[in-house]
Each structure stands twice: as C-alpha cells, then as structure tokens.
Amino acid sequence: MPPAVAVSNRTSRSARLGLRATPEQEAVLRRAADVAHKSLTEFILDSACQAAEQTLLDQRLFLVSGRQYQAFMDLLERLEQPNEGLRDLLSHKAPWDKA
C-alpha cells in the first residue's frame, strides 16, 4: 500500500529536516535507495512517512469523554438491526476467493 503522504512534487517541499547518520547507516540507505530507484531523500522521506503512518495506525488507546464512552457502550449494547446492504455484501465471495 503506498503511503498517504507521497513524496512526489519536489517544488511543494518547504520544510527542512536534518539528521545525522553513521557512515554505515548512510551506506545502507543509499544502497536501498538505489535498489528502489529513488533518490536518497525520496527513499528516506517515503520510509519515514510509512513508519510514521504505521505508528499512528497502531495506536490502541483511545481517550474519550465520559459522555462519548457511554454513547459508545450504548451502541454496543443495542440490539442487532437488520442491514440489507451488509447482508448483500456478505453474500458475495471476496474477489481474492474467486477462482
């Protein structure tokens, strides 16, 4: 899956980031960038954005107010409602299950 924050338009870049690396780290990054057919900057930004997005998506702690929590609990405890759209969706095979 491509990162949501693509590094595609060099002219729109205005923020400057600085980092220091060991010679070994730089060599690994340059080799990987070459293999990916990207510039070192593109490779580092793409990789960093991908890692950042994954870190944000992996958050499992959600802080909500007491009112929001109660509304959520009420939804969980509510009786199941018929949902024709969901029933229709689940009646079809997944595209990856088709032969």
Rank of each mutant, 00 (worst) to 15 (best):
T11P: 03
M73C: 10
A36T: 06
V5G: 02
P23H: 13
S8D: 12
L63N: 13
S65L: 00
D34Q: 08
L76S: 08
D97C: 08
V28G: 05
L90E: 04
C49Q: 15
L86S: 07
D46F: 05
R10T: 12
R16V: 13
A99K: 15
D97Q: 14
A32D: 14
P95E: 00
R87F: 02
F43N: 05
A21S: 02
D74M: 08
M1C: 03
E24L: 11
L40S: 00
V35S: 12
S39N: 01
E77Y: 11
L57E: 12
T41I: 07
G66T: 15
L19G: 01
A99H: 13
H37M: 14
Q25W: 04
R16M: 13
A52N: 07
M73N: 08
A4M: 06
A4F: 09
F72T: 04
D34C: 02
S14Y: 09
A33K: 03
L19P: 00
G85E: 14
K93E: 11
S14R: 14
H92L: 09
S91W: 01
M1T: 02
E53P: 01
M1L: 04
R16T: 14
A27W: 05
L86M: 14
I44Y: 00
L89R: 12
Q59M: 08
A27Y: 07
L56P: 01
Q81W: 02
A99L: 13
R16S: 09
Q68C: 07
H37I: 03
L90T: 00
W96I: 07
P23M: 08
S8H: 11
G18F: 05
A4I: 06
A48I: 10
K38T: 04
A51N: 06
K38W: 07
P82M: 07
S91M: 04
S91D: 05
S91R: 01
A51P: 09
V5D: 06
L17G: 04
R13G: 07
Q81Y: 02
N83E: 08
D46Y: 03
D34A: 09
P95F: 02
P3C: 05
R16I: 12
E84F: 04
P3S: 09
R31E: 10
P2N: 05
R60H: 08
E80G: 06
L40R: 00
S47N: 06
S47H: 02
R30K: 09
H92S: 05
D74H: 10
A15Q: 14
L76G: 10
F62G: 06
R13Y: 08
T22G: 03
F72G: 06
A21Y: 03
K98T: 15
R13V: 08
L61D: 09
R31A: 10
L79Q: 13
F43D: 05
F72Y: 13
L40I: 00
A99V: 09
L45Y: 02
E80Y: 07
P95M: 01
L56T: 06
A52I: 13
S47I: 00
D58C: 04
D46M: 04
E26L: 15
W96G: 01
L56N: 08
L86T: 06
R67S: 10
T11Y: 05
E24D: 15
P95K: 01
D58K: 09
R87I: 04
M73T: 13
G66Y: 11
D46E: 15
L61H: 12
A52T: 11
Q81E: 12
A71E: 15
A71Y: 07
Q68H: 08
Q54R: 10
R10K: 11
L19I: 06
P2M: 08
P82L: 04
R78H: 11
E53N: 02
E42G: 10
